[in-house]
Structure formats: C-alpha cells, structure tokens
Simulated scan of single mutants.
Amino acid sequence: MKKEIFLYLSILLLSSIGCKAQQYPLNTYYENIPNNAYIKDINNEYNKFVGNWKATINNKEVNLSIIKQDNRPIVILNKSYYSDVLLLRHNVLENNQIVENTLDFTNDKVKAISMGIEIDGSVLFDYEGLKCLVGNGFINLAYIDSNHLKWNYQPQSTVITNKNCSDYPAGGIKINLPYEPADIIFAKQ
C-alpha cells in the first residue's frame, strides 16, 4: 500500500513538473518526442469529440462516452512523456440487455485511449480489449459535424483459449463492439 501511495505521489509530482515541460502539438511524431515533454491539444482538436454518442446496429445499441484528460502520463518503450488524451468508455445493449459495459471504469482503467490526430483530422484510439484482451485493436473516429461521428473498429486477430486465459467462459468470448459494417455513424446524445 505504501508503494502504491508513493507511486501515486510521484506521478502527481512529475505531472506538476511535466506541466512546465516543453509543449508539442498532438500530431508530433513519436520519435520526435523528448522525455518529459507535454503533447498538448494546443488547438483544442479533441473538444469536438467529447460527449455522449449513440448508434444502433441491427439489434445492438452502442453508447460511447468520450472525455478529455489533460496531461496524462504516457510510457511507451523507453520514453516517458505527458499528453492530452481522449478516453473512450462504452456500453453495448443487445435486445435491451447490457452485454458489455465500461462506463463506470475509472480513468486509469479505461481500455480505449487516443493516440493522436490523424492527417485527415480523425482520432485513432488504441483499444486494449476486455476479458483476456479479446477485441484489442484500433478504433478510428472521424468528426462529421457537431452531431455525428463516423466509427471504424479493427480488432486484431488473437487466439484465446482456456489455457492462456484462466477465466475463459465455456461458451467463449465474443467481440461486442461493432466492427462490421464499416463507417458506422454515431449521433450525439
């Protein structure tokens, strides 16, 4: 417990130091980011994605909740820096029954975190997947207008069995987020 508190306080201290670090725009190439830099949403490009969004595909209703988190500590390979990010939470209802829900996940447990702005202005998210990492992949959200987003999700193919996933259910694990058809339109709620 003491180690967790120390780690939390260290992150807070480093976050306050990170605020004074040199700032770079969202689309800064990874190789050009120095340690302890701050990748900032200087032009507020993320703001238009923030909110609650909904789409219905066949008999599935998908609800997204997207928030912006400033100055999030990021560690990739041997590089540590801070970045403004979007956090995507969701729930999926099938025949009015919740089959998947991450809406109550805390910011540190969110499974879909933005990686930056693409050349076309869309946002790319790294999605960790849920149970046994099933569904991990990339989500791309394109802004259409103040009331609509276009969704494309590309899950990675992985083989999960009860040998490498201790709590693998007998009926298997399925991906509940929609990945077909492409270009699903979400409406702002």
Rank of each mutant, 00 (worst) to 15 (best):
E45K: 14
I160E: 07
K68I: 01
G18D: 07
N136Q: 15
S166M: 11
E61S: 12
K174L: 05
A142D: 07
E4N: 08
N71K: 14
K2D: 11
W53F: 04
I57V: 15
L14H: 02
N91G: 00
V50F: 07
Q156D: 13
I185D: 05
E61P: 00
P169V: 02
P25Q: 10
I11T: 12
Q69R: 14
V75C: 04
N47C: 00
V110Y: 09
E61G: 00
D70G: 00
W151Q: 04
L14Q: 10
T158K: 12
N96A: 09
P34A: 08
I76N: 13
I11P: 01
D108K: 12
I11V: 13
L103W: 10
N59D: 15
N147F: 05
Y168S: 05
Q22L: 10
T28Y: 09
D70N: 15
W151S: 04
K174S: 12
S114Y: 08
I66Q: 07
S166Q: 12
G121E: 10
E31L: 09
N162W: 02
S10G: 14
L93Y: 08
I113L: 11
L26T: 06
F105P: 01
V92D: 07
C165G: 04
I39G: 03
Y143D: 03
I144Y: 05
K48E: 05
K48Y: 03
Y30L: 15
V159P: 00
L177I: 02
F138I: 07
G51M: 08
E118L: 14
Q156P: 00
Y82A: 04
V75W: 11
L149N: 06
A187M: 06
E100W: 10
L64H: 08
D41M: 06
N136L: 13
R89P: 01
